[in-house]
Design a protein around this nucleic acid. Structure first.
Length: 546
DNA sequence: AATGTTGAAA
DNA sequence: AAAAGTTCAACATT
C-alpha cells in the first residue's frame, strides 16, 4: 500500500489515473493496453477494464502475471481481489477455445476446459475428447456464426481454421512504389505466418496516413480476387484511383459496383450502403447474392468501425476468406466492438498519431478548447429552455462570433476551415465574415469551384457544415475552428482533425480550436469528443475567453 | 441511353 | 436525443 502512486483501481473496473504524477508517462502505455479511456473530468483520467480490452491486451502478448504485477506496483491501494480474480479468468478465457483443421480436413472447435463446450453449445452435437482436450466437429459454413455466438457468451475463439484460396489474378505493384515503414509493418503483422491465424484482422492507422496503401500492398502480395467495401462514394472513387495508379491492373480487372454500374470484376469496389440496400418491402438484401457467387481471396473493409450491423451476417459467411479491416478508431458508438473482433479478427497493428507526427509523416497538431461564456441575455434565456433546446442554444452561443474574429485575425496568413453543425449558425457566420459557405445543398459544381479557389489560395477561409465530416476531397488547411459539434462522437472529432493532418509541404503545424460554452450541456458533449485526441496522447489546452 | 428530380431509408 | 447529409431506386425528361 502506497498512497504516493499514480493509479487507483476500483472493484467496479474503473482505473483512476493521475496525469500529474511523475510516473504517468511510464504507466500510460500499459493502462492503455488493458483498458479503455472513458472520461477525463480533470487531471484524473478514468479508464475502464472490460473483457474486450483484456482480449486486445492478450493479442498483444500481455499475460495476466505481468498485468497483475503492474497493478500491484503502481496502485495506491491494494487492487480489489474480486477484480483481480475476474481479470485472471478473462485472461484465461483467451486461451480456451480454438478452431483448427485436423489431419482429415475436418473443422473442429477445441476446448481445453472440460465441460465447457457442452454448457455453451448444448445443441452443438457430439462432444468428443482426445485425452487432453474436448472438441466438436462442425460444418465450416457455421464458422462465423459460431465465433460470434461464443463471443456473445463471453468466450473469444482463436481461429486457426485457415483460408480458402480465392481466384487468382495477375497483379503487381508498379515500379518504384515504396511503402512507408509503418505501412510495411502493418502488412507484415497482418500476414504473420507464425501465429497461424494471420490473414484476418484489423489495422489501425490515423486519417491521412495512407491506409489504402496497406490494402494495395496486400492485394499485390496475395494476388487473388478482392472485394473492397468503403463507407461512401468519395472513398470508393479514391480506392479505384489509387489501385489503378499504384498497380498493374488492367481496366477489365477492376470495377466500381455502384448505383450507376453494377459490374463485378476480379477487383470490385463497393459501399456498405450498396450491400445493405434492401429491395423495397420484401426486406431482402438486393445485391448480396451476386457478391456471394464469387471466389474472393480477400475482403477489405475500409473504415471497419462503420460496418453496419445488418452486414454482420454477410461477414460471418466469409470466415474462410482473408479479410482486412482498416480504421482510425476502434470505438463504435453502439458498443459492438466484440462483433468486429470475432467477425473480422483481432487488432493486428496500430500506429498512433503521435508516432507518425514525430516521424514527420503527418502534421503536428495543437488542440485548443476555448471556453466562451454567454452574454447576459443569452445566459438568462438558457435556463428558460427545455433540455433539448439548451444544447442547441449553447452551441449557437453568439459570443462565439467575437472569438472567431479574434482567431481569424491571429491566423491571418493561414488557411482556415470553420466547421459547424447548424445551418442557421453557419449562415450567421457567413453574413458576419463574408467568407463562402459550403453545405449539403451547395450544388456539386459550385462546391468544386469553391474548393478549387481555396486550394489556389484565392479564398483563405471556408465555412463548412457537416459535409466536412466525410465524403469529400477537402483541400488542406492549417487551422480548423469547430464552432459546434453534434452529439459528441469520437468519430466526428477524428474525421475533422484528420482533415488538417494531411501533410502539406508548406507547414508542419496545425491548430484545431473548439469553441465551447462552459457550464452547459455542450460542455459534456465536447469532453466526450475530446477523448479521441487524448487517447492519442494529446492535450487540449483550455483557454477562458473574456 | 444519358441525365435530372424526388422520396425513402438508415 | 436531433439535425444534416448521403445514397439508393424509380420515375421523368431530353
Amino acid at each position: 500500500m502506497n498512497p504516493d502512486r499514480p493509479l487507483l483501481i476500483q472493484g467496479d473496473h474503473y482505473i483512476y489515473v493521475d496525469t500529474t504524477h511523475p510516473e504517468y508517462k511510464i504507466v500510460l502505455p500499459v493502462v492503455q493496453e488493458v483498458s479503455d479511456l472513458v472520461k477525463t473530468p480533470s487531471s484524473i483520467h478514468i479508464y475502464k477494464i472490460s473483457s474486450h480490452s483484456i482480449w486486445y491486451a492478450c493479442e498483444q502478448g500481455i499475460e495476466f502475471q505481468e498485468a497483475s504485477r503492474f497493478f500491484h506496483t503502481f496502485s495506491k491501494l491494494q487492487p480489489p481481489s474480486t477484480l483481480m480474480d475476474w481479470m485472471k479468468s478473462q485472461f484465461e478465457r483467451y486461451d480456451i477455445l480454438k478452431i483448427v483443421l485436423d489431419s482429415r480436413n475436418r473443422m473442429k472447435l477445441v476446448s481445453s476446459k472440460k465441460g465447457l463446450l457442452l454448457s455453451l453449445l448444448p445443441d452443438g452435437g457430439d462432444c468428443l475428447t482426445d485425452g487432453e482436450n474436448e472438441y466438436m466437429v462442425f460444418d465450416p459454413s457455421y464458422r462465423g456464426r459460431l465465433k460470434k455466438r461464443l463471443m456473445n457468451e463471453g468466450y473469444p475463439v482463436k481461429d486457426f481454421g485457415g483460408y480458402e484460396q480465392g481466384a487468382g489474378i495477375d497483379i503487381s505493384k508498379k515500379e518504384g512504389i515504396r511503402l512507408r515503414p509503418y505501412q510495411k509493418e502493418a502488412c507484415d503483422a497482418f500476414m504473420k505466418r507464425s501465429s497461424l491465424d494471420g490473414g484476418a484482422g484489423v489495422v489501425i492507422l490515423p486519417c491521412g496516413s495512407g491506409k489504402t496503401m496497406v490494402g494495395i500492398e496486400l492485394l499485390t502480395r496475395l494476388r487473388q480476387e478482392t472485394l473492397i467495401v468503403t463507407p461512401n462514394d468519395t472513398s470508393l472513387r479514391q480506392w479505384f484511383r489509387e489501385v489503378k495508379q499504384h498497380t498493374s491492373v488492367s481496366d477489365e480487372e477492376i470495377s466500381m459496383y455502384d448505383s450507376s454500374k453494377k459490374e463485378l470484376s476480379p477487383i470490385t469496389i463497393t459501399t456498405y450502403q450498396m450491400l445493405t440496400h434492401k429491395r423495397s418491402k420484401s426486406g431482402e438484401f438486393s445485391h448480396l447474392k451476386t457478391f456471394r457467387e464469387r471466389q474472393w481471396g480477400l475482403v477489405i473493409y475500409d473504415e471497419v468501425h462503420l460496418l453496419p450491423a445488418p452486414l454482420f451476417r454477410f461477414a460471418a459467411e466469409l470466415q474462410s476468406t482473408r479479410r482486412l479491416g482498416l480504421t482510425a478508431t476502434c470505438v463504435r458508438e453502439d458498443g459492438r466492438e466484440g462483433d468486429i473482433f470475432s467477425l473480422i479478427g483481432p487488432k493486428r497493428y496500430e500506429a498512433g498519431i503521435k508516432m507518425l507526427e514525430e516521424n514527420q509523416w503527418i502534421a503536428s497538431p495543437t488542440c485548443k478548447e476555448i471556453r466562451v461564456p454567454f452574454c447576459d441575455v443569452d445566459a438568462k434565456k438558457y435556463w428558460l429552455l427545455s433540455k433539448k433546446e439548451q444544447f442547441r442554444h449553447a452551441s449557437e452561443n453568439k459570443e462565439k462570433l467575437n472569438v472567431l474574429d479574434h482567431i481569424l485575425k491571429k491566423h491571418s496568413r493561414n488557411k482556415v476551415l470553420i466547421i459547424g453543425s447548424y445551418l442557421d449558425q453557419l449562415e450567421m457566420v457567413k453574413a458576419h465574415t463574408g467568407f463562402p459557405l459550403v453545405t449539403g445543398k451547395t450544388p456539386k459544381e459550385e462546391r468544386e469551384r469553391i474548393f478549387q479557389n481555396f486550394r489556389q489560395s484565392k479564398i483563405r477561409v471556408l465555412i463548412l457544415s457537416k459535409v466536412a465530416n466525410l465524403a469529400l476531397d477537402l483541400p488542406d488547411a492549417e487551422v480548423g475552428i469547430q464552432l459546434s459539434g453534434a452529439f459528441g462522437s469520437r468519430q466526428e472529432e477524428a474525421q475533422r482533425i484528420g482533415r488538417l493532418l494531411r501533410k502539406s509541404e508548406k507547414s508542419d503545424d496545425v491548430t484545431f480550436y473548439t469553441l465551447v460554452t462552459p457550464g452547459t450541456k455542450e460542455e459534456e458533449r465536447a469532453s466526450n469528443r475530446q477523448l479521441f485526441m487524448i487517447e492519442q496522447g494529446y492535450e487540449y489546452k483550455t483557454e477562458e475567453w473574456g
